[in-house]
Computed example of a mutant assay.
Amino acid sequence: MDLSKIKMVVTDMDGTLLNSNHQVSNRFFEIFEELKRKNIQFVAASGRQYHSMVDKLRTIQDDVIFVAENGALVKKQEEVLLTTPISRNNIDPILELFASEEDIHPILCSKDIAFLHTSSTKCLGSLSEFFSKYKIVENLSLVDDEILKIAIYHFENAEEYIYPSVRHLEDSLKVKNSGSNWVDISHKNAHKGYAMEKLMQTYGVASDEIMVFGDYNNDLEMLRLSEYSFAMANAHPNVKKVSKFETSSNNDFGVERILEKLI
């Protein structure tokens, strides 16, 4: 495995760079300084809100490209490089699917803030980990902000309790199981692969010059772009099938171990 040509490192956050306590290791921040010295661009790519991602990487935020909301928003140093909003015509029908479901919580994600329904306050402790900036509203259909993504939460199993109700939308929208508790719905082009293709074109990076780490189905498109794609040991079977390599789990410094080999 010849890593001498790598110009860009891309990693998912939850289940990948973050451990099970949603923390970034001190070990990573030490490695990051070496990446910076070698002029290797670091990209954080997540289904998380931009502000939530920054909270995890605040000390290095000026040197990171953030691919947020599963690729619907790309920012660097507060400059918006890409937005891919979902059509307003798609939002209300999706909300109506879950209007009577007490344990399913749709969240509307805009560029700057997330909108939660009042019924979601009962699980606010879990949701606030992923949304640093949010507003609670009585009627999501009345939100008039531009929406980048509809994130739908189930406290137990999103793949079982949410995905079957929305899989029929896959012909016209991007529908992703982005974690054990989440299904994300967005514009057809609002995914990490599309965002990374744009960044690779902008920065002149080829498939053998980029290293990508992921653990869940919302990482599949970006993993396919790289000759050096790594699935975490804790990854979804689909991710392990697509990735060319595997590393240890997010709780066993899986990303850091490979980056140490790179530097």
Rank of each mutant, 00 (worst) to 15 (best):
G179D: 00
S249R: 08
N70S: 12
K174A: 12
P106R: 04
T59R: 11
T16K: 02
K244M: 15
Y194Q: 04
A190T: 08
F213C: 08
T16V: 02
Y228F: 15
V54S: 04
E79C: 04
D112S: 14
K188R: 10
V239R: 00
G193Y: 02
S243Y: 07
T16E: 00
N181P: 05
D14A: 06
V64S: 01
M232G: 10
A114D: 04
H187F: 06
K122W: 11
S165V: 05
H236Y: 08
Y228G: 09
K188P: 02
V54T: 12
H187I: 06
Y194P: 01
D208Q: 12
S126W: 09
S178H: 01
M196E: 05
G204Q: 13
L142S: 09
E34K: 02
F230R: 12
V10M: 05
E221D: 14
Y161E: 11
G125I: 04
G193C: 04
V239Q: 01
I104D: 05
F131N: 11
L18M: 10
A99F: 06
K241I: 07
Y203L: 10
E78T: 08
K261H: 12
E209R: 13
I113D: 06
K198W: 09
R27K: 14
E101F: 11
S249D: 03
I263H: 04
N26F: 04
W182T: 10
K122Y: 14
N218F: 08
N19A: 09
S178K: 00
K122I: 15
L116N: 09
K5I: 05
V10P: 03
S119Q: 14
M13P: 03
L223N: 02
K133E: 14
D2M: 12
V143G: 10
K174N: 15
S128C: 14
F28L: 14
Y216P: 02
Q41T: 11
M232S: 11
R27Q: 07
L262D: 04
V205F: 03
T84C: 07
S165Q: 09
L35W: 07
K240H: 06
V24E: 05
L95T: 07
D103H: 02
S141D: 10
D62Q: 14
K135Y: 07
D184Y: 01
E246S: 15
I113H: 04
E246D: 11
D215M: 03
Q61M: 13
I31V: 15
K122F: 13
N181R: 12
S25K: 03
V183D: 13
S52F: 03
T247C: 13
D62S: 15
S186M: 11
F213Y: 01
S207T: 07
E138K: 15
I107K: 06
I31R: 00
H22R: 10
L95P: 01
P237T: 07
E96I: 05
N234M: 07
T202S: 06
W182M: 12
F130A: 11
Y203K: 08
D62T: 14
Q61W: 00
F130W: 04
S128A: 15
S178I: 03
D12P: 03
E260H: 10
E146F: 09
Q23R: 12
I185T: 14
E96N: 08
L18S: 09
H168L: 04
W182E: 02
D103V: 00
I40G: 05
E197F: 05
S132T: 08
K133D: 13
I258C: 13
H236D: 04
E33R: 06
D171N: 13
D63C: 07
A44M: 05
F29C: 11
